[in-house]
Design a binder for these strands. Structure first.
Lengths: 344, 344
DNA sequence: GTGAAAGCGCTAACAG
DNA sequence: CTGTTAGCGCTTTCAC
């Protein structure tokens, strides 16, 4: 009943274990495993064989501490629940694919307080860079970002000053543009339906731009309705019904996102309302999801995937401009009239 | 022109900086910042003041290496693109909230190879535990998981042997149950429409169970149709049209997920097909999204949120059973007939 | 209640 | 091409 020579099978293997098993120094083992520096094919093979046989998984914690390098990119977004941020993520993920960098995602639920906590947690892992949604942050968050000493990319929104780099669209202008298209199509009695999220700054800016353009045309919103929580499709349906009951003479409904817009569209089709003749509809985002609806909802592409790609390229240093301070990239969303705004 | 005393403003602050700024030893600073051990209120205040003033963010890499503890839980899922995994994540996130543990998400795109790479990467950060979707893994992945020496929870699926703990539903049984309900409702000429993902093992198991139950009733699938990529809603529409054109006499369509089912439903309503009288429809997942459709699609709740919660509790050690080996939890999905299966 | 010393597992920098 | 030495920034352990 002698104790076996292996000390503790639960203990994770170290470089030393591989070194002993292969008869090669730790340093050379390390070189092989990282593909750094020249190692003779013979030694290399012995090391790889031993590492594979033992099932060695390197300890990045130790590696990162020693090398002062972490291959992580912090990505901080408000939500995973609505298809728009996953698409941004897909863009980031794609662009990072051949860089050795890895995204790590944190979710804030549109709360500045949560953002601060998530950011603190992520910065404590000393990532290579930070990508985060929006330009509005708490003072503490802003201070952390400014002092982090790593590239910061604020995405989605360009309406305001950025800490470092910035990639996105102008939501204010997007709201204006939609209003102008609606007015040009001859609609006059317009209602707005949106989310009641005080911290959804982009939705707020779209609405502000929308109102501004209406005002310049001598118009104003006839009615507004806000919601929070629940199935967006269902909410869109309910809110549309409520609003049309209050104001049967509305001739256009502008929704803050495509999902509630889709709910509204389905409601109108149910009720046999003539869309876009008697009533026009528009949403925002250009979510692919909607392609299967009976009519294509008018919307505006928010360039989500492209935003993610560019942000990731900035972090990866693939867009080195010699700018002092960060890079600014403003994309221009495309208006898609679909089938729910009548031709002029 | 003397050099300022601060060495380099870009260098991240260390415990030593806080120690010097507060005149308290590094060790005591560390204790204050971690709320560990007794420290006099006076010292504590000085330390906290200094840390805040400097904007110190602890280095978790060094902390983790020294303490051999990492507050990260690796979560590995196939996709973020379809609402089902975000809901699992929400459950995990909730359950982890007051434990000091943090989920880190990796995405495999339903590829075993990607899973292996993601797993390797995550294990190299020495997480507290691993939660991953499914029971099917490459040999190498399995070996890594078995040797990791940390709790592993395989989720979503219980149809097969698990490495350690296991939380999910039986997709085979879910398929059977749906078939039985359809047959009981009197449908006989049944088609199946699904994703063509060889690595979506859960969809495959549902189909197998479905076929098995049909077989026992002396029936078999009249037609099948598979797709990959694109807008699920649109695909559902197109596939439904294709299948009904080929086989106009089908009386039921079983979809492998709710989104394509919804597309099919919209198509049928468009065409004025009598649902559920002449044609019945059913999907899978119970996605809240669908609540806004004109009819409620028959579906089966996959208990996504609950699965996430339980898995996280297991990792957090909140469900200590004295089992040797892992814990097994099988949840039972509820069949929701909605408006698209006729009453018996 | 506080501090000093000794590593955690790895890699940078240098020698040979 | 390979090995040795000295840390990375923190926490453990043990003194005081």
């Amino acid at each position: 009943m002698s104790r076996p020579p292996t000390p503790d099978p639960r203990r994770p293997l170290t470089l030393r274990d591989v070194s002993e098993a292969s008869g090669v120094s730790e340093m050379t083992v390390s070189r092989v495993l990282r593909n750094r520096g020249d190692v003779s094919p013979a030694t290399r093979d012995r090391v790889i064989e031993a590492a594979k046989r033992l099932g060695y998984v390197p300890n990045k914690i130790a590696g990162a501490l020693a090398s002062q390098r972490v291959n992580l990119v912090a990505v901080i977004i408000p939500s995973l629940g609505n298809m728009v941020f996953p698409e941004v993520l897909a863009g980031i993920s794609d662009a990072l694919d051949d860089t050795g960098l890895q995204p790590v995602v944190g979710v804030t639920n549109y709360s500045a307080e949560r953002e601060e906590a998530v950011l603190y947690e992520m910065l404590s892992w000393r990532p290579t860079g930070v990508i985060l949604a929006g330009l509005e942050h708490s003072d503490a968050s802003r201070a952390m970002l400014e002092n982090a000493g790593i590239p910061i990319v604020e995405i989605m929104d360009v309406d305001g000053p950025a800490i470092d780099s910035n990639v996105g669209i102008s939501h204010h202008r997007a709201g204006r543009q939609m209003a102008e298209a609606i007015i040009a199509a001859g609609y006059r009695r317009i209602g707005f339906l949106g989310t009641m999220m005080p911290d959804d700054h982009r939705a707020r800016k779209r609405l502000a731009g929308f109102r501004e353009a209406l005002g310049e045309a001598g118009l104003s919103l006839v009615d507004t309705e806000f919601y929070s929580g629940g199935s967006a499709l269902l909410k869109g349906r309910e809110m549309t019904e409520a609003m049309l009951t209050r104001n049967p003479d509305l001739d256009f409904l502008y929704y803050s996102n495509d999902m509630i817009g889709a709910g509204g569209l389905l409601y109108c089709l149910d009720k046999g309302i003539d869309v876009p003749g008697r009533l026009g509809l528009a949403g925002f985002n250009g979510v692919e999801l909607l392609d299967g609806l009976p009519r294509r909802l008018a919307t505006m592409d928010a360039c989500r995937r492209e935003i993610g790609e560019i942000a990731a390229q900035i972090i990866a240093g693939k867009r080195q401009s010699d700018l002092i301070g960060g890079e600014r990239v403003e994309l221009t969303p495309k208006l898609q009239k679909g089938d729910t705004i009548r031709a002029v």
